[in-house]
């Protein structure tokens, strides 16, 4: 089985969010980049578990520049066999997805896994766009994934519950919590990652359809109103009369 896992970077979840250049750029000052948690914890680790039980290879792909090789090495240390970096500053989801689809077209993967969303842009766009470009089925926000021969069985969230679904390979799956447990790379993995193949490919000429023109921070909350723990009637009255939510 040939598995492709799409890896993106995201700012560490505790990063201070600020903007520069007249609110046009994310302020990277002091920001640590990590592998997007959904990609690392769920897509990559479940992909590795499937590879370990069923045999095959697991390739990671990232659309990013040379600085992103740190997150690629981390994913290799966790266990991916090889990596591909499509050499460009990632633009909008459409461009990223089309770059990945172009690469995947010539490589016949059985399973393409992505994270549920990137935690900076929260778009949940890339997986569906890859699937459409390759004319493959997509199971989005899967929380379980098993493969038996040429059929994959998944559990996914639906509004107000969960659903078990089946689809034939090849298939695109976006991975959410529940699919696997985080793996911490060990020393041997970290050493091995240094010599695993990392291919850099030139990007294809593809348009963008959207771009961020400005950012901002939400208006600051007004100070919290403290309520005496022995006066819950007052809290209920405030929620009714002042906040008007009950």
């Amino acid at each position: 089985m040939k598995i492709l896992v799409c890896i993106s970077k995201s700012p560490d979840t505790t990063s201070k969010i600020a903007f520069t250049d007249g609110n046009k750029q994310f302020d990277e000052n002091g920001v640590q980049y990590i592998v997007n948690p959904y990609d690392e914890w769920y897509a990559l680790v479940r992909g590795l578990e499937l590879k370990e039980t069923l045999g095959g290879t697991l390739t990671i792909v990232t659309v990013g520049n040379a600085a992103d090789e740190a997150i690629i090495r981390k994913a290799l240390a966790i266990g991916a066999d090889d990596a591909v970096r499509i050499d460009m500053e990632p633009k909008d989801a459409f461009n990223v997805a089309m770059q990945i689809a172009e690469y995947a077209k010539s490589n016949a993967f059985d399973l393409i896994l992505t994270g549920k969303e990137t935690i900076n842009y929260n778009g949940s766009q890339v997986a569906g766009m890859i699937a459409e470009a390759l004319d493959l089925p997509l199971v989005s926000l899967a929380t379980k994934l098993d493969v038996n021969g040429s059929t994959a069985t998944m559990e996914r969230e639906i509004v107000g519950g969960v659903q078990v679904v089946e689809a034939n390979l090849p298939l695109v799956v976006s991975c959410a919590k529940g699919m696997a447990e985080q793996r911490i790379p060990n020393m041997r993995g970290i050493m091995a990652a240094r010599t695993k193949p990392l291919t850099v490919v030139a990007p294809a000429a593809i348009d963008e359809l959207t771009s961020y023109v400005e950012y901002g921070l939400p208006a600051a909350k007004s100070a919290v109103k403290m309520i005496d723990p022995n006066n819950m009637d007052e809290l209920v009255a405030l929620l009714h009369n002042e906040a008007k939510v009950i």
């Binding site: 969010i17 903007f19 900076n120 842009y121 929260n122 359809l209 961020y212 901002g216 939400p218």
Partner: peptide, 15 residues
């Protein structure tokens, strides 16, 4: 909403 609700963005569509 971007950055998991910690900020907002203005997105231009060109298509």
């Amino acid at each position: 909403n971007v950055f998991s609700g910690k900020a907002y963005g203005q997105v231009a569509v060109t298509s």
